[in-house]
Design a protein around this nucleic acid. Structure first.
Length: 198
DNA sequence: AGTGCGATTGACT
DNA sequence: GTCAATCGCACTA
């Protein structure tokens, strides 16, 4: 499959707009064993001033990559068990980002199945932790420029993203009512309860 | 230096 | 449907 990297200049400045923009784009992971890729079908925006965001109380050692120019990776471990892939947004010096929550697998399915320990296509990258495990994404990718070909990067999607739904974000205790989650309507690789995916 | 908790997942009733 | 696992980090003292 032929992928073209996203140009930083085409990324929307606004975080919520970026989250919507990324739907239908592709994540490309180049490993020594081959290329793994998937189509982004679900994202969440963590905007400026968001009590649920990791930058709410300013920059810390962990969150410094969220303050980079748009299009850089922010990776962190959640619940001690799952790594999360985020894309920094907003201008350099402003901390905000977009969580990539689910992919529709495109290439490298066999390797993803091995990484995930299951043959179920639907379970490979449905959910942020699963996605990271399937693509072998860890702390090594923190701060990486995703607008440039390399071990991990973002690419143009092929064709229209489809009908995009918008609703509340999943799993939050603070600022839980903001409609900052975006997903492809009717796509079976979207995570979350059915009631939220209408 | 100690402590509580979270943008989840998978196993189990 | 419920629930425990697991650990780096931010906050308190």
């Amino acid at each position: 499959m032929k992928f073209v990297p996203l140009a930083r200049s085409e990324l929307p400045v606004d975080t919520a707009a970026m989250a919507r923009f990324l739907i239908g784009k592709a994540v490309v992971r180049e490993t020594s064993e081959g290329v793994l890729s998937g189509r982004i079908v679900e994202t969440e925006a963590y905007i400026v001033g968001d009590a649920a965001g990791h930058t709410f109380r300013g920059m810390t050692p962990r969150t410094r990559s969220l303050f980079l120019e748009p299009g850089h990776a922010y990776i962190y471990l959640n619940y001690g068990t799952s790594y999360m892939l985020n894309v920094s947004s907003e201008a350099a010096g402003i901390g905000a980002g977009v969580l990539i929550r689910a992919l529709e697998p495109l290439e490298g399915v066999a390797i993803m199945q091995r990484n995930r320990g299951t043959d179920q296509l639907r379970d490979l990258a449905r959910g942020p932790g699963r996605l990271a495990q399937a693509l072998e994404i860890g702390p090594w990718a923190n701060g990486l420029d995703l607008c440039q070909k390399g071990p991990l990067w973002l690419a143009q999607g092929d064709g229209e993203p489809g009908d995009i739904g918008q609703g509340v974000r999943i799993g939050l205790t603070r600022d839980a009512d903001r409609p900052l989650r975006f997903y492809v309507r009717g796509n079976r690789f979207v995570s979350g309860p059915k009631s939220l995916n209408v």
